[in-house]
Write a protein that binds this DNA or RNA. Structure first.
Lengths: 181, 181
DNA sequence: GTCTATAAAAAGATAGAC
DNA sequence: GTCTATCTTTTTATAGAC
């Protein structure tokens, strides 16, 4: 809990980056060690197995979700607008963690799957007081999921099909008009 | 083009099923051959490499999307309602193909990624005449993506976070009220 | 068209030196 | 705390019999 070594964090960063840009298949322990600038043995000192490496990014996600839920509850522009806007990849630590853990989940990790479900539940709790009914809550969460989904695919491909700028503002206004309690 | 051998199709079915239920990591050529009830050599006669196997499911997806777009355009309940309703996994061939190709995309396949983007574009073309504006189109597509995303995760996990039955009807009504042109 | 046998590479993991 | 060397298992792919 105290102060994780610098090398440990850089290994975790490298693993996360590989998951994001090349997928779970390419995020091998060998590739992670190379990307982090350590040897395989050095990596294995910090993370004794591939599961431990996955647990590392999942744990990091959990902590970031805690901060995010606080930010949602106290957002000046309102929880719904803030939530949707922050669902568009800003390349911040939370977005990166979500996409990385999504890759693990789709590669078959039960722990990653559970973490994503828990994140979803915590979002629902934070948003529920601010929407009209369950259908409105479903709508907001599904639009957010859609935004993440499209960011999670793509990787580094050319045209991003996700609305940005004025288009995103229009989408948020449309959703807010439909869900406000 | 004429009449693909029966064994070829059963190999493709097995590969798709493995992708859906266990992820790209588990969908090895060995496991696929076993699940299809053929030997590794038998599989390799039909699909000379793992890329060829992936190309097979991608090609099948393309054909199914063509049918789906026709169904969307001519749906009696209206294109938007039909589109959203069919976004909830019904375990039909199209849903299965989408989820399988999504797994490949998230595992790093560029071809799978391109196929999903093309599918999206064809959906947008079919829906655009039936919604108010671009924000409305974005909303419909993102809700659909959200529904697929949640089905694509999960696999066989306990609680499905996707609205069903009356909750789905309420969601569709809410979206239709917001997007109708 | 389908099989067995096997090669070649890559992955996860261990042991022990420094 | 980090390295090199090595082992085991898994995965992809080839060769050739039937």
């Amino acid at each position: 809990m105290s102060r994780p070594p610098r090398a440990r964090d850089s290994v975790l960063d490298a693993f996360e980056q590989l998951l994001i840009s090349d997928g779970a298949r390419a995020a091998t322990m060998d590739a992670t060690a190379r990307a982090a600038g350590v040897s395989k043995g050095g990596l294995l000192y910090h993370f004794a197995s591939k599961d431990a490496l996955a647990a590392g990014v999942i744990e990091r996600l959990s902590a970031l979700v805690t901060d995010d839920v606080d930010a949602i509850r106290t957002a000046p522009e309102g929880p719904v607008a803030f939530f949707l806007r922050s669902s568009v990849m800003a390349d911040d630590p939370l977005d990166r963690a979500i996409i990385a853990v999504s890759r693990l989940a789709q590669a078959g990790s039960a722990a990653a799957n559970a973490a994503l479900r828990e994140m979803r539940e915590r979002w629902e709790e934070a948003l529920r007081p601010h929407v009209r009914d369950q259908a409105a809550l479903d709508l907001v969460i599904l639009v957010s999921d859609g935004l993440y989904f499209n960011n999670a695919l793509g990787g580094d491909t050319a045209t991003a099909p996700v609305p940005e700028g004025a288009a995103l503002d229009a989408l948020i206004a449309l959703v807010e008009g439909s869900v406000r309690s």
